[in-house]
Amino acid sequence: MTSAGTARRLWALAEPYHALTYFSDESRAAGEAAGLSGFWSTYFALRAAPLGPVGPAVVTASFYNFAPAFVARRVPAVWDAATPRAALEARSAGVDAAVRRVLGEWAASPEAAEAAGLARRAAEAVDAPGRPLAAANAALPLPDEPHLALWQAVTTLREHRGDGHNAALLEREVSGPAAHVLVAAAGRVDREWLQKARGWDDDAWSAATDGLTARGWLDDDGGLSAEGLAMTTAIEADTDRLALGPWRALGDAGCDRLGELLVPVRRAVVTAGLFPDRNPIGVAPDAA
């Protein structure tokens, strides 16, 4: 039977390919061509575009771990610069250009087509209730080009996983800033980078730290306590479990084959420097 570990491994393998839309020069250029200015305006417009021209409250709720004021500085202003349709076109154009530069002839290869077919089967099995970003991405038509169809399918699957992760956090009453405090306490990403990348100020960080300390999840030095380690482990286990449905639908053989096909793709993206080691996504460049 397909295991929760399979869901984690395939996420780790596919995430750098999805993240081309954040970290490649081509995606930033496509955003600028659509009228978007700066990394974060491009990020919010391209990632939120499947939801339509939503306001900051919906984006903050759906993305879960960004400070509301950080979101509100870009949303809804991004929709004045580029409509959701234009943002969707920009993210596709950016990924297309980045893939053709980094992976060259692979984009039109039988391997790309096979990977797209497998990822599509999994994405079609996504369970949408309670998962707004997964549902919005699943509703988009898949492009004809295999490398873009693969990107859209793995994006639907990663947003499905992310929606489930948010549910696991919510179930344990872990707020957005508290989730980042736990990540920093575990030594996965440093506090300064997380605060900068998600917009939480020192007061919010301190309040989250105090709350976790009161719950017994942090020790006197600010690291994870035994209980904190157990709870973060449980959250990650629930995230894997909640992400498993589409991979079960694909089956063991399909998951294994997709993993094989994604290994060289992941390696090419990481080798090209398009998946920085200091990022808040949570997948290390040398994972999987």
Results as ranks from 00 to 15, higher is better:
residue 180 H to C: 10
residue 253 A to H: 11
residue 185 A to Q: 06
residue 231 M to W: 12
residue 176 G to Y: 02
residue 196 K to M: 11
residue 236 E to D: 13
residue 208 A to S: 14
residue 255 C to Y: 05
residue 184 A to E: 13
residue 216 G to M: 03
residue 176 G to N: 02
residue 254 G to T: 01
residue 181 V to K: 08
residue 206 S to V: 15
residue 236 E to L: 10
residue 200 W to E: 04
residue 224 L to N: 01
residue 255 C to I: 07
residue 251 G to P: 03
residue 200 W to S: 01
residue 239 T to N: 12
residue 226 A to E: 15
residue 254 G to M: 06
residue 237 A to R: 13
residue 188 R to D: 10
residue 198 R to W: 01
residue 217 W to G: 01
residue 251 G to A: 07
residue 197 A to Q: 08
residue 230 A to C: 04
residue 172 R to M: 10
residue 194 L to G: 00
residue 222 G to E: 05
residue 248 R to M: 10
residue 231 M to H: 10
residue 248 R to A: 11
residue 222 G to Y: 05
residue 192 E to H: 14
residue 196 K to F: 12
residue 179 A to V: 04
residue 179 A to I: 04
residue 205 W to E: 03
residue 242 L to K: 08
residue 178 A to N: 05
residue 193 W to M: 10
residue 222 G to T: 07
residue 183 V to E: 05
residue 232 T to V: 14
residue 204 A to K: 00
residue 240 D to L: 02
residue 229 L to E: 13
residue 243 A to C: 04
residue 237 A to C: 03
residue 243 A to S: 15
residue 228 G to Y: 00
residue 255 C to H: 08
residue 253 A to Q: 12
residue 233 T to M: 09
residue 226 A to Y: 07
residue 233 T to K: 12
residue 225 S to E: 05
residue 252 D to K: 13
residue 200 W to D: 02
residue 200 W to N: 01
residue 205 W to P: 04
residue 231 M to E: 12
residue 210 D to F: 09
residue 235 I to M: 07
residue 219 D to Q: 00
residue 227 E to K: 14
residue 245 G to C: 04
residue 213 T to G: 13
residue 175 S to L: 11
residue 192 E to Y: 09
residue 217 W to K: 01
residue 173 E to Y: 06
residue 227 E to R: 15
residue 201 D to F: 05
residue 231 M to V: 12
residue 239 T to W: 07
residue 184 A to G: 10
residue 233 T to D: 14
residue 207 A to P: 04
residue 199 G to N: 08
residue 250 L to W: 06
residue 223 G to L: 09
residue 187 G to H: 09
residue 197 A to F: 00
residue 184 A to V: 11
residue 221 D to W: 12
residue 171 E to P: 02
residue 254 G to Y: 06
residue 199 G to A: 06
residue 231 M to N: 09
residue 178 A to M: 09
residue 230 A to M: 03
